[in-house]
Amino acid sequence: MMERSNAIFENPPADDVSEQAIYWFALLLDGAETDQDRQAFARWIEADETHRQAFLDIERLWAGTSSLDMSEPARTLGRRAFLGAGLAVGLVGAAGWYGRIIPHHPFADFAASRGERRNITVMPGIQAELASQTSLSLVQNQFGQTGLALHEGEVFIEHDGRQPGFFVQAAGLVTRPREAARFDISHYDAGGDVIAANGSLDVTLNAGHHSILPGQAMSFAPGDMGMPRPVDLAVRLAWRQGKLVFVGDPLAHVATVLQRWQPGKIIVLGEQLKKRPVTLVVNLDRTADILPLMGKALNVEVDQIGRYLTILRAA
């Protein structure tokens, strides 16, 4: 059995029932689930008829693949050409919209589900506020110091100085508060940011090192660090007050961020539209309203396809 806390299962893995069903199906497929997982699954499946149906749908999907061709595309071109002939090409032209569909890191010690903000005490003197779809685990380094691994998402840490060896690692980057500090780290596929609100931070990645002073942010990507730069803390940390603030941000970025906080995917069609600058304040308690409103404000057509997909296109 893989060791992990059952903390994640106290919350459903995603707002979307179908995504929850996928999550459960994938977890149970392995056979390495814990007794707690099994009990949580049993509770979930019995909680609602839609859960049962969603799980059966995924079972059916899986069963449907039992007789299909899974040969390697590159090695069987001739055959694949036959198999693929005349098959429909999917709508999914917007590259990257699959990016954030995985609802959770299933083995995390702490997690916030989609749309949720969550405060936790990690250890004495360390508070963490998790943004939507964030997962964290406790880790120890080779010196026996305890820290956090941010698997994905965004977390705001308040460190009162009682844990001198404390660190946060994300995508190879290690962040250490020098003394008491309040800071924010985000980590998504393409990289992330470290923001110092109060107190200074030391960040290291491979052999590189930077100091981040209060009011500064630094971007990082796997294997790469940017330079510390001034940041508008009120804008950047507005999520903690239940708001998302965008100031002249490209619509594609706005869609990506919104997607982290509400169910379903948002696709922006058209390169021009993706780049269109948007200035907007979103109330996170009312994200359902935001797309229609944004459509009106930006003169953009908003097509909702079921509960899963919203397409924005130029009117």
Binding site: S18, A26, V92, I101, I102, P103, H105, F107, I305
Partner: peptide, 25 residues
């Protein structure tokens, strides 16, 4: 293994979404 699990979730999600999308077209 966590990454393997995440990729499986992703695969199932893609298969589900793709079959649904094609169904609508």
């Amino acid at each position: 293994p966590q990454t393997a699990f995440s990729r499986m979730v992703r695969a199932l999600t893609l298969l589900r979404d793709q079959t649904k999308i094609d169904e609508k077209n």
